[in-house]
């Protein structure tokens, strides 16, 4: 098991190294630079600024400098927000993104699995149709429509929760979490439903029925594990995406997460911030995928002795 984890971490490190290299050079290949959009500045000052950020050096030297910084967990200064380092910006925003992201995934998993199981157990029943409608709505209606809709009902009309911001403690996070969860509720419920219908057809489930274990125990002990394997495989990448990719939610609900940096940094050619955010997403994805594989191996003994 330790060897399994060690190997996955090693593979993950290699992937990250490739990611860093690729992102670094692709960024430099794109036209423009961090200061090309600035108001007119004299060539002398521009040269000075360039020198401060070492942008006057050859690209390969910049790369070496960046990698050297990485080893000491120094992601460098932001070229846009002059007084902040990339590390500062990530550690300020990440807790918010992680909080709403994790809760959204938990909520989405609980509701999605429940709806999916209900749908698979009672196909074409009322519960199945409700789950189906939630699925279509959740996937088809974008969150910039759902978000303001919920804001107008629950914040403006009913006044149960604030419209946005972070002033009201946990109440402020309820709507963003729900809105962020909704598309995942939809996807997880459909995934659970089809996976469970497939599992119910397995011969070993017939064996369990033939043992007379009863419907409840059959689902709990014989159907659930096989049903959840694909769902868990989906949850790893989905969690990474939900944590880093919540820019719409952050904009709609005025939350200081890291999602907005993704877009802003690229638009501003803020090289160090783009690198930092990309690295963060890559690292999250790798860590969560390893976690996913470990959970799957814990559930399915056939996956344990593999590589």
């Amino acid at each position: 098991m330790l060897r399994f984890i060690g190997r996955r971490v090693w593979d993950g490190g290699l992937t990250l190294a490739a990611l860093v290299t690729l992102t670094f050079f692709v960024m430099r290949l794109a036209p423009g630079g961090p200061f090309s959009k600035s108001r007119k500045i004299s060539p002398e000052i521009l040269a000075n600024i360039q020198k401060t950020y070492h942008l006057d050096e050859p690209v390969w030297m910049q790369f070496g400098r960046y990698v050297k910084g990485l080893v000491t967990f120094d992601l460098g200064p932001s070229t846009r927000f002059r007084d902040y380092t990339v590390g500062d910006m990530i550690s300020a925003g990440l807790p918010w993104s992680v909080t709403i992201g994790i809760w959204a995934i938990i909520v989405a998993t609980l509701i999605g699995v429940a709806l999916g199981v209900a749908g698979a157990m009672r196909r074409n029943s009322a519960a199945d149709y409700v789950a189906g409608i939630v699925g279509v709505v959740g996937v088809a209606v974008p969150i910039f429509v759902i978000g303001p809709l919920l804001q107008s009902v629950f914040a403006l009309r009913l006044g149960w929760v604030p419209v946005g911001g972070i002033g009201a403690g946990w109440r402020a996070l309820v709507l963003p979490i729900l809105v962020l969860a909704l598309p995942n509720v939809a996807y997880i419920s459909r995934l659970t439903r089809s996976s469970m219908i497939e599992t119910l057809r397995e011969n070993y489930v017939r064996t369990a029925r033939a043992k007379g274990v009863g419907a409840a125990r059959m689902v709990r002990r014989h159907v659930l594990k096989g049903t959840l394997l694909p769902v868990i495989a989906y949850l790893g990448p989905a969690t990474a995406a939900i944590i880093t990719g919540s820019i719409l939610i952050e904009t709609i609900f005025a939350l200081p997460g890291i999602g907005r940096h993704f877009v802003d940094a690229a638009l501003n050619r803020d090289y160090p911030l783009v690198m930092g955010i990309t690295l963060l997403y890559g690292a999250l994805l790798i860590v969560l995928n390893i976690a996913t594989d470990l959970i799957r191996a814990w559930i399915d003994p056939r996956l344990r002795n593999g590589r």
Partner: peptide
């Protein structure tokens, strides 16, 4: 009780 035809798939792998 019953013994099925295909023992490869009749037991719960988990």
């Amino acid at each position: 009780s019953i013994v099925f035809q295909d023992p490869m798939t009749a037991l719960n792998p988990f």
